[in-house]
Simulated assay, not measured.
Amino acid sequence: MTGKVRVNAYSVSVDGFGAGPDQSLEHPLGVGGERLHHWFYPTTTFQTLFGESKGETGVDDGFARRSMEGMGAWILGRNMFAPSRGGWPDDGWKGWWGEEPPYHVPVMVLTRHARDPIEMKGGTVFHFETGGIEAALEKARALAGDKDVRIGGGAETIRQYLTAGLIDELHVAVSPVLLGRGEPLWQGLDLPALGYEVVSSTAGERATHLILNRVAKDKR
């Protein structure tokens, strides 16, 4: 039995952007993109991930906590791993998160440029997949066993998996901010035609949490 393919705790603005524009080393989430995650930063789950002992509990923390449970592998787009473009520079870059990333499982990074795996502290191993989204998912499932595979982003990676009908469950946290520009999540997607429906909407302390599921074809 294989686990689900899911997106969890993916923050979007009210106008539908999953990151701000002009990502760089100084702006990992794009300009203004950090505001999307203001619901997540104060939670006990986030604070614990980065070695702090105190944080807020409540609705937002409940969604944050569940987002980290039951995972056997992650899939990330290249821009979620590094600010560089094109061939990999010889700069020693190992991700945004320091020597012990918060994943603790294998992570497939989508890229057009091959590279050897990188083993990090705490069980995270970054694998670099050049064969596209389906090849990455096949390998992630093999690594995850009966646990879930989480698609971490960014927006274009999630859009590709949605378009292919490969995501079983999608949790987005709608933050009460407007970005105006950035990386659009929903643009051009006909989600009902792709088989998705909203199954719950929950107001948290700092965001509204939407759960979308993929519906079986015979139930559409």
Rank of each mutant, 00 (worst) to 15 (best):
V5I: 14
I133N: 12
G33H: 06
M120F: 13
H37Q: 12
E134H: 02
Y161F: 14
L191K: 08
L210V: 06
D15F: 09
V59Y: 13
S11P: 03
V198T: 14
T44F: 08
T208P: 04
E56V: 07
S175W: 07
H38E: 15
P28L: 13
R220F: 00
H127K: 07
S53W: 04
K147I: 00
Q187I: 11
I118C: 00
D168M: 10
A114M: 09
E119R: 04
D60L: 14
F63D: 03
D15W: 11
G122V: 06
G123L: 11
V5D: 08
E56M: 02
Q160T: 03
M108S: 07
V215G: 14
L191E: 09
A216D: 13
D22M: 07
G18K: 06
Y10W: 08
G165V: 05
P106T: 01
H171A: 00
E156K: 15
V109I: 12
E169Y: 08
G98S: 01
E34W: 12
R206Q: 14
G132H: 09
M108Q: 10
M120N: 09
A203D: 11
V215K: 09
G86D: 14
S201H: 02
I151Q: 02
F17S: 01
A136T: 09
A82H: 03
I151E: 00
G132E: 01
K139W: 02
S13I: 03
L185P: 07
A114G: 12
S67H: 06
G70I: 10
G20E: 01
Q23D: 10
D116R: 03
N213Q: 15
A64W: 09
P89Y: 01
G195K: 15
M71I: 06
N79Y: 05
F63P: 03
F46I: 12
A173P: 01
S67R: 01
G145Q: 15
D116P: 14
L170R: 06
T163W: 12
F40I: 11
V105E: 09
K139R: 06
F17W: 10
P89N: 06
D15N: 00
E205V: 15
H171W: 04
S201F: 14
R6K: 11
A173I: 05
S175Q: 05
E52H: 12
N79I: 06
L29D: 13
A173W: 00
E34N: 15
K147D: 09
G92Y: 02
G32H: 03
Y161L: 13
S67D: 10
M120Q: 09
A173V: 12
V31Q: 06
Q23E: 13
I133H: 10
A164L: 05
W39T: 14
T163I: 13
H127R: 12
V125W: 00
R214K: 14
R66Q: 15
A140I: 03
G122L: 04
T130K: 08
R112A: 02
N213A: 10
Q160C: 07
H209M: 00
V109M: 02
H127F: 11
H37Y: 14
L143M: 12
E169L: 05
K94F: 00
V149K: 01
N79L: 05
S53K: 10
W88P: 04
W93F: 14
F128W: 00
T124E: 04
G98P: 03
I158Y: 11
G16K: 13
L210K: 05
